[in-house]
């Protein structure tokens, strides 16, 4: 089966300048930058779920937003079905917006508290002028609410967000993203603020949509266990760079990068007899303004050596579709 490339990202960078204090800005001409996304490249195929895994501050949320052009990238190229997004005018980009949508992390913030659920879900239809009559809009809202298991729709349509639970709100957010039949959705930690027991429902609903409509999904998360469940391929990010990319089972069962190993070891397992020795990484994620020299992970890595401090490892393809950026990949 030929896999058509939907999204192609090349050398994406996004740097945020920091506001200095008044006097400091007078003294220095250099503006310190937060290198949130520092030269990443990847592709997503049609109908594929690509997981972007990492801790807070690694740049995954920024990547998602940049893909949707909610933020302007500092450098790099983004292609959607072969169209260079950065060269489009505002109006042309608007036409493409129908095909790309986003789901946010916070179910409390992503719904306008003053709008009814019906208005929230039907808003993209009206904004993108996809329906001609009110009946059509109503029909599509009903359809998508049933797909999200918010039945009976009448019971939820006229409520306001504060009357729904977190899980229900997140389903509304998914419904809103999906009603325009996009081809690509960025899901930015969609379930991390929900109860662990509800997560599976929302994730399963999203999986259903992916399988039924050949939706491509960029699933951003810090939970390796959940990423394993839903993603086809995973890219692990650390401080704005990829450290490992590959198919999910490969990455989760046979990690090559010490950071990936640490991430997997840190995830608790729902089995009291399954406790294993922890590979705990010391320290915290360093300040992204002044990343460590050489390999960015070296201060926390338990395998680090002299060269790790001096030279930054490149992302190399060690097998087909399997990339790692480490001088001493595990198991090799």
């Amino acid at each position: 089966m030929t896999e058509k490339k939907l999204i192609e990202v090349y050398n994406l960078r996004k740097y945020f300048p920091i506001k200095l204090g008044f006097f400091k800005s007078l003294l220095t001409s250099e503006v310190p930058l937060v290198r949130a996304v520092d030269n990443i490249s990847f592709t997503i195929n049609e109908g594929e779920v690509f997981g972007l895994v990492g801790e807070s501050g690694c740049g995954k949320t920024t990547t998602g937003r940049v893909l949707l052009q909610l933020i302007e990238p500092t450098a790099g190229k983004i292609f959607f079905k072969g169209v260079d997004l950065l060269k489009l005018s505002h109006a042309e980009m608007r036409k493409l917006r129908r095909k790309m949508q986003i789901i946010f992390q916070d179910p409390y913030e992503s719904l306008n508290p003053r709008m009814s659920i019906y208005d929230i879900i039907s808003e993209p239809l009206h904004l993108l002028k996809l329906v001609e009559t009110e009946e059509e809009a109503r029909k599509r809202v009903y359809e998508v609410m049933e797909a999200m298991d918010l039945t009976p729709p009448e019971e939820y349509m006229f409520r306001f967000p504060h009357e729904l639970s977190g899980g229900q709100r997140q389903r509304v957010a998914v419904a809103r993203a999906f009603i325009v039949r996009p081809e690509f959705i960025v899901a930015d930690e969609p379930v991390s603020m929900l109860d662990a027991s509800i997560r599976s429902e929302v994730v399963k609903l999203m999986q259903g949509l992916v399988q039924k409509f050949r939706l491509a999904l960029l699933y951003i998360t810090h939970d390796m266990a959940l990423a394993r469940y839903i993603c086809d391929r995973i890219g692990v990010m650390y401080l704005g760079k990829f450290v490992e990319v590959g198919r999910t089972e490969d990455v989760t069962q046979h990690p090559l990068h010490p950071y990936t190993e640490a991430l997997i070891a840190a995830v608790p397992v729902p089995d009291p007899t399954g406790r294993r020795t922890k590979v705990i990484v010391k320290g915290e994620v360093p300040n992204p303004i002044n990343p460590p020299s050489g390999c960015r992970f070296h201060p926390r890595c338990r395998y680090s050596q002299e060269i790790c401090r001096k030279e930054e490892p490149q992302l190399v393809e060690v097998e087909k579709g399997r990339f790692v950026a480490c001088h001493f990949p595990l198991g090799k």
Binding site: R97, I102, D106, E109, L111, P124, L127, A177
Partner: peptide
């Protein structure tokens, strides 16, 4: 987030 979503829908 809801403002960003609206912008994402044009």
């Amino acid at each position: 987030a809801f403002v960003e979503c609206a912008i994402a829908s044009g």
